[in-house]
Structures are given as C-alpha cells and as structure tokens.
C-alpha cells in the first residue's frame, strides 16, 4: 500500500514537472518557464511578453527572435533608465539575448521583454497566446503565454 502511494506521488510529481515547464528535447536543454504578459486595453497597440529561459545544456545559446500569431510583429526589446532618469526602450543590442550554458536569462518588467507590436488578439486576463521563441542553436520553441497580473 505504502509503495503504491509512493508511486502515485512520483507520477504526480513527474506530471507537475512536465506541465510547469516547457522542456525542449534534444541537446539544447533549454527550459522555459513563467511565460506571461500583462493584460492591456484593446486600444493599446502594443504588449509585452516576459519569460525565464534556463540553459541546462552544455552549449551556449541565444534568443534571436520571436513570432506570435497574436502580434503583427514581435521584437526583442529592453527598457532601461538612462543617466538623466528617463526611461528608454530599444531593440536589444546585436538583436540577441545570450543564454550561456548553465545560466538563466530573465525577461522581466522594466528590463528585457518580447515586445508585441500591432496586437492582433485581446490581452485579456486568463487568455493564453502562442509565442514562438527563435534560438540560435535550439531553433524554434513554441509555448503559451498566460495573460495575467504579475
């Protein structure tokens, strides 16, 4: 009886782990988690996606682009504060976000993000939008972004 319970617990854990992250097969070993975007009004032309990318593999990789059926265009951008205290937003330098082996790249509010330009779908709370991340080595990884409050 005890052994069966343990098996069920292990199976449950495995299912949890499988559903909480999108693991990319193959050599890349990229683990993508916490993919989300903020709800935004219909009149807002743009939105932002945030995601955490962990490289569990032995090879360096980099995020080099993104596409989404929810966006007319998706670009890798970075918000930052300049030395005058002004917020500025620019496409990321070199068009790539490095994800070295064994490291984690965090796209978060006030920093790196996938900018969704000319929204084609509503960013309403609870919506799940498809997003394809393009990696230098691992290729395309498609996942769902949850629209929610942070």
């Amino acid at each position: 009886m005890k052994r069966i319970t343990t098996h069920w617990a292990l199976a449950g854990l495995a299912i949890l782990m499988a559903t909480s992250t999108v693991s990319c097969g193959g050599d890349a070993g990229l683990e993508i988690s916490d993919a989300w975007g903020r709800p935004s009004p219909s009149v807002a032309t743009t939105g932002a996606f945030f995601v955490t990318i962990t490289n569990n593999g032995a090879e360096d990789d980099a995020l080099i682009g993104a596409t989404s059926p929810a966006c007319g265009a998706a670009e890798l951008h970075e918000s930052s504060m300049d030395d005058q205290g002004a917020m500025t937003m620019q496409p990321v330098a070199g068009g790539r976000i490095a994800v070295p082996a064994g490291e984690t790249a965090v796209l978060e509010q006030g920093g790196l993000h996938v900018m969704c330009i000319n929204k084609l779908e509503e960013f309403t709370e609870g919506a799940r939008l498809d997003l394809t991340l393009q990696f230098e080595k691992a290729g395309d990884i498609t996942l769902q972004v949850e629209i929610r409050e942070p």
Partner: peptide, 13 residues
Amino acid sequence: YTFCPDVCPTTLS
C-alpha cells in the same frame, strides 16, 4: 504613452 508596452502599463497598474 499608449504605445509603451512595459513601463507605462506597469506604472498605471
């Protein structure tokens, strides 16, 4: 501005 996807919505929220 409304085109701002990150800092403006975060601040208003």
